[in-house]
């Protein structure tokens, strides 16, 4: 049942090479990092899902929302950077203990970095924390509210 009309109507398939080129250009991530995945566009978002035939169903979500195309420049999601950002070779920011804590809380801070203005992969001790917006010496955390260490959040669940 791959590629039924309903799947196509809402989630439009994208070429892997097209998505990979954008990530290579901004972050220097090799195209091979995206082998084994499929990509779809729905409205102003790009989604990534494991490479598998999808039955003809009406879908709310496929895998993970990976990119937001609304703005002047595209924005990677924090979750997608946590999966694919490890292989970045450009536009990275490395944080120390205190900076990482502030970043995870959703804060903005002064950081000296050689990174170009725009979205950056934020690292702490070799692990990707998520997406930051770097501009004029300031790093603005883009961690989604429900993943921040500060503020209220639904904790326990079954």
């Amino acid at each position: 049942m791959p590629g039924s009309s309903r799947t196509r109507n809402f989630f439009e398939p994208l070429e892997r090479s097209e998505v990979a080129a954008m990530w290579r250009e901004r972050f220097g991530i090799p195209e091979s990092a995206f082998d084994g995945y499929r990509f779809y566009r729905k409205a102003q978002s790009v989604w990534v899902v494991s490479d598998v035939d999808l039955p003809g169903l009406s879908y709310e979500a496929l895998g993970m929302r990976m990119m937001d195309l609304k703005g002047r420049v595209w924005k990677p999601t924090t979750c997608a950077l946590q999966v694919f950002g490890r292989l970045a070779s450009r536009n990275m920011v490395h944080l120390d203990d205190d900076q990482a804590r502030a970043f995870l809380a959703g804060g903005t801070q002064e950081i000296e970095s050689a990174t170009e203005p725009g979205y950056a992969v934020v690292f702490y001790r070799g692990e990707v924390l998520g997406c930051g917006l770097y501009s004029r010496g300031r790093l603005i955390s883009q961690i989604p509210k429900e993943m921040r260490s500060a503020g209220c959040q639904e904790g326990d669940e079954t």
Partner: peptide, 11 residues
């Protein structure tokens, strides 16, 4: 998304 479960499709 947080757990990186990329082979999940939601209906």
């Amino acid at each position: 998304e947080r757990l990186g479960a990329l082979n999940v499709a939601i209906t």
